[in-house]
């Protein structure tokens, strides 16, 4: 029973941790849209705009990656850890 509860908690937590994917999705979409606008206005600056956008996207992605790593920990590490405590 306790095992089942622990596994259930870990699985639900891993699912919930991927809610963190919403933020980077919206943020990166916004950044890319703005970059498209800027390239439309100033096509000659395409190179530096693109590399700046990619860098910004990579930084905006951090929170999503944290969520993903938390999910991985909950699936692969946490069950063993908590079941070992029993």
């Amino acid at each position: 029973m306790e095992k089942a509860l622990i596994l259930m908690g870990c699985a639900i937590g891993a699912g919930l941790s991927m809610i963190a994917g919403i933020g980077p999705g919206i943020g990166e979409g916004y950044a890319v849209g703005k970059t498209c606008e800027a390239i439309g206005r100033q096509p000659e600056a395409k190179g530096s705009l693109t590399s700046t956008m990619l860098l910004g996207c990579a930084i905006a992605e951090t929170t999503g990656i944290y969520g993903f790593v938390t999910g991985l920990l909950l699936i692969f590490v946490a069950p063993g850890l908590f079941l070992g405590m029993l």
Binding site: E61, T62, L72
Partner: peptide, 16 residues
Amino acid sequence: ISMAFRHFGNIVSGYV
């Protein structure tokens, strides 16, 4: 930490 996790997370998510 964020530099390491960013690189790691991207590659591992592809693998998974």
